[in-house]
């Protein structure tokens, strides 16, 4: 009977009454068959009551973790300033790269100077 209850429990089909009987059997029978001992341990573990922290301990914990209101007041402007600075640096870097490209292109054009067709016409038609 107990094995049937255990199988139904493992299938998730046991009723409250079956579960109660199963728990009682596993927790109170002194000479359990060897294959049922792991289940008895499992039930014993489930029966153990987990310690609940006191209200004072919870308050102390939250007081240690949460930044003080003064710190929050300082942190917000600092975070905003850091974001603005990062954005400014990024934009500046992009502009510098664009300027560098423009500048070097201009220099390449001058150092490798080639006449425009209009200028060549003028040069060749010179009296």
């Amino acid at each position: 009977m107990i094995r049937t209850y255990l199988n139904r429990y493992l299938e998730g089909e046991s009723t409250q009454e079956e579960l109660r009987q199963l728990r009682e059997y596993l927790c109170s029978t002194p000479d359990l068959p060897a294959d049922l001992i792991p289940y008895a341990k499992m039930f014993a573990l489930l029966e153990e009551k987990q310690p609940t922290p006191s209200r004072q301990a919870l308050d102390r914990f939250s007081a240690e973790r949460a930044p003080s209101s003064r710190l929050r007041v300082i942190l917000w402007p600092l975070s905003a300033a850091a974001c603005i600075t990062a954005a400014w640096l990024l934009l500046n870097w992009h502009k510098e790269q664009a300027d560098l490209r423009l500048g070097t292109e201009a220099l390449t054009e001058i150092f490798s100077h080639e006449y425009e067709p209009e200028q060549l016409t003028q040069l060749f038609n010179e009296p």
Binding site: I110, F111, E116, Q122
Partner: peptide, 28 residues
């Protein structure tokens, strides 16, 4: 010289580079 205007490029630069260095860097 273009048909209706002029395209002008003006450059100012300073540094340790000699004209030979600049030719090497920028001349095609």
């Amino acid at each position: 010289e273009k048909s209706s205007h002029y395209d002008i490029t003006l450059v100012y630069m300073e540094g340790k580079a000699t004209l030979a260095d600049l030719r090497k860097s920028f001349k095609k």
